[in-house]
């Protein structure tokens, strides 16, 4: 017995829906873009005053749950940090921001390094110039014995009769 055309069409639609179903469900489930461990290494527990990843206080556990929920929703790291700042203010960020006064945290070490390199270069130049003979351009060269030294050396050698 062959199925009727209408029944066959309905069976086809049902089969298609069954095939699409899991794909649709997967598409609706957000994919995590970051992780709790990644975020908690870069934000603070404001009450504890330590990195969130090191904190186990009740407040830290609430904060970790908040981050985990946002991670599961598929939020990006920046979005989650923004959400934390909205809740706790900028002090929740463990890393200084790249603007305003916080920028000095990145600039000061670079400026200090450049100043140190310049100071070292100037010091090396002065040290090398101090070793140069007066008026000479090149480095100081070892000098041989003068006439008095040669006479004294000859006298000593003659005295010991080697």
């Amino acid at each position: 017995m062959r199925p009727r055309p209408a029944l066959a069409a309905w069976l086809g639609v049902a089969a298609a829906l069954l095939a699409i179903g899991p794909l649709g469900a997967r598409a609706a489930t957000p994919q995590p873009q970051t992780s709790l461990s990644e975020i908690s290494a870069e934000v603070m527990c404001p009450v504890c005053g330590t990195l969130l990843e090191l904190a186990e206080s009740p407040q830290a556990l609430r904060e970790k749950a908040f981050v985990s929920r946002l991670v599961a929703e598929g939020r990006s790291k920046d979005q989650i940090k923004d959400a934390l700042v909205a809740e706790y203010g900028t002090e929740v960020l463990a890393l200084p921001q790249g603007s305003g006064f916080d920028l000095s945290a990145y600039l000061v070490p670079i400026i200090a390094f450049v100043i140190a390199v310049i100071a070292l270069a100037i010091g090396v130049l002065r040290w090398r110039r101090a070793g140069d003979p007066p008026g000479g351009d090149g480095p100081a060269r070892p000098r041989g014995p003068n006439a008095a030294d040669s006479e004294r050396l000859d006298a000593d050698l003659a005295r010991y009769d080697l």
């Binding site: 404001p46 909205a86 706790y88 203010g89 900028t90 002090e91």
Partner: peptide, 10 residues
């Protein structure tokens, strides 16, 4: 009673 929010603890 009324409630305010001091998120950053300032």
């Amino acid at each position: 009673y009324p409630q305010l929010r001091d998120g950053d603890g300032a």
